[in-house]
C-alpha cells in the first residue's frame, strides 16, 4: 500500500511580470526579471548580538518559518549574503566589526535593523552604546519592537522584498547612491 500523498495546494506563485508574450517566448524588461529573482532568494546574514537574536531564532524555527519567503539559507559569511540582519544592541566597541562585515558584503546588499537597539539605541541611551546602526552603515528597513515579535521580523523582510523587487538596476550607479555611500565614507 502506498503512502498517502499530500499536495500543498495553498501556495502562492510569484506573478509573471508584465510583458509581451507569444508562442514560445516572452519579452519583458530586464529590471523586472532580475528584481523578481533577487526578491525571492534573499540570503540573510544574521548579525545577532542579544535578545533580538533569540527572537530571530524563533523566526527561523518551525513555528514562524522564515524559509517560506525564500530566505531558507542562512549564510554566515558576508561574502555570500545579500541581506545583513542586525539584531540586537551594537556597542561602540562592536561598531567597527559591524562596518567591516558590511564592507565585506558584495553589492547589491541590503540591511535590516531589527529591534529598537539596532534602530536607535533603544532603552540604552548610555555612553557605550551606538545610538542606531545607521550611524555607521546605511539601513534599508527598520523593524520596531524591543524585541520585535517574529511576525514583525517577517514583515520587515517582506518590506525589504518589496524594495528589492522594485529597485532599479541602475540605482547602485546613481549619483544619489554614491552620495549616500560617501556620507558613510564607503568607497
Amino acid at each position: 500500500m502506498g503512502r498517502p500523498v499530500q499536495y500543498n495546494t495553498n501556495m502562492k506563485l510569484s506573478p509573471i511580470p508584465e510583458g509581451y508574450s507569444g508562442e514560445g517566448f516572452m519579452a519583458t524588461s530586464f529590471d523586472k526579471v532580475v528584481g523578481l529573482a533577487r526578491k525571492n532568494s534573499l540570503w540573510p546574514l544574521p548579525f545577532a548580538t542579544s535578545c533580538c537574536g533569540i527572537e530571530f531564532m524563533a523566526t527561523m524555527g518551525a513555528n514562524y518559518d522564515l524559509a517560506r519567503f525564500g530566505s531558507e539559507r542562512m549564510g554566515f559569511t558576508p561574502r555570500q549574503c545579500d541581506v545583513l540582519l542586525v539584531a540586537g544592541t551594537i556597542a561602540k566597541k562592536m561598531a567597527p566589526v559591524l562596518r567591516q562585515v558590511y564592507l565585506q558584503m558584495a553589492e547589491p546588499r541590503w540591511v535590516i535593523a531589527i529591534g529598537a537597539c539596532a534602530s536607535s539605541g533603544g532603552i540604552f541611551d548610555s555612553y557605550p552604546v551606538l545610538q542606531g546602526i545607521d550611524q555607521v552603515i546605511p539601513v534599508d528597513v527598520y523593524v520596531a519592537g524591543c524585541p520585535p515579535r517574529p511576525e514583525a521580523i517577517l514583515d520587515g523582510i517582506l518590506k525589504l522584498q518589496d524594495l528589492v523587487h522594485n529597485e532599479s538596476l541602475r540605482r547602485r550607479n546613481s549619483p544619489q547612491y554614491k552620495e549616500l555611500m560617501e556620507s558613510y565614507a564607503i568607497q
Binding site: 561602540k92 566597541k93 541611551d125 548610555s126 555612553y127 557605550p128 545610538q131
Partner: peptide, 20 residues
C-alpha cells in the same frame, strides 16, 4: 568592558550616563 581608548571611569558619579 569598555573600549580601550576610554579615558575616564564612567561609573563615578560626576560622569553622566549619556555619551558626552
Amino acid at each position: 568592558l569598555n573600549v580601550d581608548e576610554m579615558d575616564y571611569f564612567p561609573l563615578r558619579k560626576e560622569y553622566q550616563m549619556e555619551d558626552p
